[in-house]
Design a protein around this nucleic acid. Structure first.
Length: 646
RNA sequence: GCCGGAGUAGCUCAGGGGUAGAGCACCGGUUUUGUAAACCGGCUGUCGCGGGUUCGAAUCCCGCCUCCGGCUCCA
């Protein structure tokens, strides 16, 4: 048989030859380094076991530690291996444990177990499990693949009490009509597994179990809670250490830690999920508000303010009572049931309804820094990134059918304009019609086409999230990741045909007939809370000058320089700079250190020399001394930089 | 909400049935400082909350709250 190598050259092999044979035919070194093989038949490549026979005429590529990862590469293989070794160790250490699934993931792998009644595993147990895993890796056990008819496989796993495996096979039979399954054995452990695997356990260069967590079987909250053990594996010890070091650094950028250290906000047991904004954090918030307000004016929005508490009848009409009640807070006022708003749309509809609207008025764009409350489950709260008190940079655009496309594009462009300001590169997601929805198929066809068209007309990459739209319309979401890679939705642009219907919004057309406007719901930053949280992590607390709570601090060298330092501070303040004065009786080294730790962009050191010359010695955060300049020159420079929002 | 872990001074953390500790912060004093921590002294606590066991509980047990990591949810 003949196969083709990546450089296009052919390789002749005996019939029935395997990937391992091919590697050996190319070279002993390659054979030793080989972890897997990528086999392409008819153009589609697939990662396979080295032990699998090669099809005649295929193109192959031996996967080694140096191969690109590209979705499924060397790391995928050894992490998959490591998951099996983890299950091997756990089944040995905990007799009676049931195994479920254990895939490789972005940064490592996990395996989900159902431990016998009364057995709990905590992070204290990980070391013991790692020890056992090391034994199996040291023993360099081979991964051996075998196939078994479905009936036999079910019988086997049932006999072993491995109910989850039985369920998996039964589902594979039902959904894919398979007749046999593949099993992989390494040492004493055999697992139902599609593969592929590297040749043996020793290929796992370095690994570490990282955490224990709960996870529902099949991601279904109504089913058994399993114990998930997370780990990570790399080809070398150095890679592992580098990864752990990066994780450590990432923790230092955590907005919750920085928020406390920099005095931006606080959280308290007396109001879980509802941040308190400290004076410094409030400056950040206010700067963002100024940006928000001016850009909304620039783009034709008018600002409104609406109540946060409404008669429950409104929520019944809007549909929230039916679909969103569990996420809302209710109270009675003089026996009248009221609900705190979880969204601003019904409020903006009330304003729309206040007067008769003409097609000449459209589009009408109401923007509000809208305060909504949502009952987020207690276990999901997370600093500023998941809160119950949410201040949205919300807006609703009421427009005609013909205006929708243009308005959607304007929303997106507006969003990118804001994100550019911070150097954010959001990941885009298009969510389409969910199973539970309102409106006609034609409406959905058009709405989805409009959103997709908007993305494509801007040449934007996006992930399609089928069936995940709002019940009233599809949406485009803007996502950012936090410091350890968790994805958070910030902005959203949604097309809504439902709310105008519910509230009977109308406008008079050129034909003098009544028409129904469409509604675009959009929040671009998403919420101030979440946006600032991401902002803090993005900048690692080193906010750009215009956002920095304290933009400059005057540092007198000795007490006798305090009056001059105060003069300097006053002059800067008069130019609109947020400036402080450190008049403590401390060494200048101490004052600098404290200002550096507070990440103050400009430190202004003043002593005899500066006072005599009417100048300040300027020190830039992290850069150090950048030389002396006249106070007026500095004031001008800072004011200009702040105005540019650079 | 679910699973696991944690909660001791403002912060970071030690202690683990018998008088509550350290460093930093804070306060007082001395030093008057030239680009990342001057020196000396002092203060600081419902050991998350409630109940129980005990002669005695921060420590053991039960319930609750909050936080952390996941999962579900949200989007």
């Amino acid at each position: 048989m003949k196969i083709q190598l990546p450089d296009g050259s052919p390789l002749e092999l005996p019939d029935g030859a395997t990937g391992a044979d091919a590697a050996r035919a190319i070279g002993e070194g390659l054979a030793r380094a080989a972890l897997g093989i990528r086999v392409s038949e008819n153009g589609t490549g697939e990662l396979r076991d080295l032990s699998a026979p090669l099809p005649d005429g295929a193109s192959i590529e031996i996967v080694t530690g140096k191969s690109p990862e590209d979705g499924m590469g060397p790391l995928w293989l050894i992490r998959h291996d490591a998951a099996h070794v983890l299950a091997t160790a756990v089944t040995e250490l905990y007799p009676g444990v049931k195994v479920s699934i254990g895939p490789p993931i972005d940064d490592g792998f996990y395996y989900d177990f159902d431990f016998p009644e009364g057995v709990t595993v905590s992070s204290d147990d990980l070391e013991r499990i790692e020890q056992k895993m090391r034994e199996h890796i040291k023993a360099d056990e081979r991964f051996e693949r075998s196939e078994l008819p479905v009936a036999e496989a079910i019988e086997r796993f049932r006999a072993e009490g491995q109910d989850y495996k039985v369920e998996l096979i039964e589902d594979l039979v039902r959904d894919e009509g398979i007749e046999s399954v593949s099993l992989y054995r390494n040492g004493p452990f055999t697992d139902l597994c599609r593969g592929p695997h590297s040749p043996s356990t020793k290929r796992i260069g370095a690994f570490k179990l990282t955490s224990v967590a709960g996870a529902y079987w099949r991601g279904d909250a109504s089913r058994q809670m399993l114990t998930r053990i997370y780990g990570t594996a790399f080809l070398s010890k150095d890679d592992l250490e580098e990864y752990l070091r990066r994780l450590e650094e990432a923790r230092a950028r955590d907005h919750r830690k920085l928020g406390r250290e920099l005095g931006l906000f606080m959280l308290s047991d007396v109001a879980p999920g509802m941040p308190f904004w400290l004076p410094k954090g409030t400056h950040v918030w206010n700067e963002l508000t100024t940006l928000w307000r001016s850009t909304n004016v620039d783009r034709g929005y008018t600002e409104v303010r609406t109540p946060i508490l409404y008669d429950v009848e409104l929520w019944k009409k809007s549909g929230h009572w039916h679909v969103y009640r569990d996420n809302m807070y209710f109270t009675d006022i003089e026996d009248q049931p009221m609900g705190l708003k979880p969204m601003n749309c019904p409020a903006h509809c009330q304003i729309y309804l206040r007067e008769a609207r003409s097609y000449r008025d459209l589009p009408i764009r109401f923007a509000e820094q809208g305060l909504v409350h949502r009952h987020e489950p207690s276990g999901t709260l997370h600093g500023l990134l998941r809160v119950r008190h949410i201040t949205q940079d919300d807006a609703h655009v009421f427009c005609t059918e013909e205006q929708i496309e243009d308005e959607v594009l304007r929303c997106l462009d507006f969003g990118f304009h804001i994100y550019d300001q911070f150097g954010f590169k959001p990941r885009l997601e298009l969510s389409t019609r969910p199973e539970k929805r309102v409106g006609t198929e034609e409406m959905w066809d058009k709405a989805e086409a409009v959103l997709q068209g908007a993305l494509e007309s801007r040449g934007l990459e996006y992930d399609l999230n089928e069936g995940d739209g709002a019940f009233y319309g599809p949406k485009i979401d803007l996502h950012m990741t936090d410091t350890i890679g968790r994805s958070w939705q910030l902005g959203t642009v949604q097309l809504d045909y439902y709310m105008p219907e519910q509230f009977e919004l109308t406008y008079t057309g050129a034909d003098n007939a009544e028409h129904r406007p469409a509604m675009i719901h959009r929040a671009l930053m998403g919420s101030f809370e979440r946006f600032i949280g991401i902002l803090i992590e993005h900048y690692a607390g080193e906010l750009p000058l215009w956002l920095a709570p304290v933009q400059a601090i005057a540092l007198p060298i000795a007490d006798r320089h305090v009056p001059y330092a105060r003069l300097v501070a006053n002059e800067l303040a008069a130019s609109g700079v947020r400036v402080e004065l450190d008049d403590r009786t401390e060494s200048v080294g101490r004052k600098i250190r404290d200002a550096e730790l507070q990440k103050v962009p400009f430190m202004l050191v003043v002593g005899d020399k500066e006072e005599d010359a009417g100048r300040v010695a300027v020190r830039r955060h992290r850069e150090g001394d950048i030389g002396a300049m006249a106070v007026s020159e500095l004031a001008e420079k800072l004011a200009a930089e702040i105005a540019r929002r650079a």
